[in-house]
Structures are given as C-alpha cells and as structure tokens.
C-alpha cells in the first residue's frame, strides 16, 4: 500500500512563507485562502523569549475526522492516503470544519476579487474556474501533480514533478514528501531517525504529517 505523508523539520524552517505562496499560486487559490499556513508563537518574557514557527496543512489523517462526519461523501480518503474533497458532492454543510481538530479546512463562501472593484484579473479568472463557491477547500497534497507524475513513471518525493510544490520550493529545505508505508523512503527514514511526531496524536486521527525538532 501507499500512504503519502510529509515531514516538516522545525529546526530548518525559517518561517519565510515560501510554502504558503507556492501553494497559493500553483493551486490558484482564491483571495483570503491559504491551504498551508505558518503559525508563529512567541513565548517567555523579555529577554528570555523564544518564537516557535510551525507550518501547518491538512494532515491527511488515516482516521480522518472529516471523512467520518461528511454527510454527502464529498470528503474521502484515496487509496494513496490522500484526503480529497469532491467539490461536486460538497454541499457546504461544514461539518468537516467542525470535526477537523487542526483547522485545516476553509469554506469558500464568496468569490472575492484580488483587486476589489476592478473586475477579474487573470488569476481571478483561473481561480473561479477551479473553485466554485459554497464548498469546503483544503490541501490536496498536490494530488493532480502527484498523479500526473506517477503517470510519467516518476516517484513522489524523489522526482520534483511528482512532489507537492511546497516541498519542492521550501527555501530552508524543511519539507519532505513521500510514502510513509515504504520503510526506505526519505520521509520514513527521517521519522525513524529523528523521532518524528504527529500533531495531537491523542486525538487518534493518525496524521500523515510528521514534525521533527
């Protein structure tokens, strides 16, 4: 079996937002929506202060809470472990947003403009082709890209054309992608060697995104 997952090395991340911007542009996301975000939190009191920088995205959980609650069957887990929303089936009820403990889903309620009051720019037009309103959207692990790559015989995680763009472009080389079921994949090796951990494992969702550091 295949189970795609991601490893994010927090000791490498510099919080630049390259992942956010790459995802936004490559997926032509509508105004106001980022499928991956970089959370920054300051802790301590001056001068003993630290800042944690944690990139987050859909965890593509093995026991996905969103899949369980979706009444229309729009959200489902693919054979490769990727959790995908079928926009045609999504009724916009947003149960999944309530159920997701990671806040990784976004409701596209209204088609905003990048330049309000100035009509549709080229990117607004593409975005509107891709995303209807009244549906829930989220990270797909660049599903189309990975599938296209596989058709060409490429290996996700090793070959860039079969790898999510956030992992390719990350300028601090903090993101890694691959098959968690393959013990020899880079992600599996990194998780084993660095005791990779999932976000809130206590929820029992079995996320496919692991953090190092």
């Amino acid at each position: 079996m295949t189970r795609y997952g991601m490893v994010i090395d927090l000791t490498r991340c510099i919080g630049c937002g390259s992942c956010m911007m790459s995802c936004k542009a490559e997926n032509q996301l509508p105004p106001g929506i980022f499928w991956t975000r970089v959370l920054k939190k300051e802790s301590g009191k001056y001068p003993a202060v630290s800042i944690s920088t944690v990139p987050v995205l859909c965890n593509h959980c093995e026991e996905a809470a969103c899949v369980k609650v979706c009444p229309s069957g729009a959200t489902s887990r693919q054979d490769d472990g990727t959790v995908i929303v079928d926009y045609e089936k999504c009724t916009g009820c947003r149960y999944c947003m309530m159920a997701c403990p990671y806040g990784a889903r976004f409701y596209h309620d209204k088609a905003e403009l990048f330049y309000p009051g100035q009509g549709l720019s080229a990117h607004d037009r593409i975005s509107r082709q891709e995303y209807q309103t009244g549906v829930v959207v989220k990270c797909t692990f660049c599903h189309d890209r990975v599938q296209e790559g596989l058709k060409k015989g490429l290996k996700p995680g090793s070959d860039r054309e079969a790898t999510p763009i956030c992992a390719n472009n990350c300028m601090a080389k903090a993101r890694f992608f691959g098959d968690l079921d393959d013990p020899d994949s880079e992600v599996s090796v990194l998780i084993r060697a660095n005791r990779g951990r999932q976000l809130h494992p206590e929820y029992g969702t079995e996320p496919s995104v692991y953090y190092l550091g």
Binding site: C16, G17, S18, M21, A25, Y115, G119, S121, R160, N169
Partner: peptide, 21 residues
C-alpha cells in the same frame, strides 16, 4: 545555486504581470 528553491518574492513578479493598475 538556489538548488531548485525559491522565496515568496518571485510569485510577486508573476502577479505583477496582471496587475490591473
């Protein structure tokens, strides 16, 4: 030299093309 990686800035160059202003 950038080893296939980018910062957020070049995306601005893309969106700049289609800036209605």
């Amino acid at each position: 030299k950038n080893k296939g990686r980018v910062c957020p800035k070049p995306f601005g160059l893309v969106q700049k093309l289609y800036n209605p202003n």
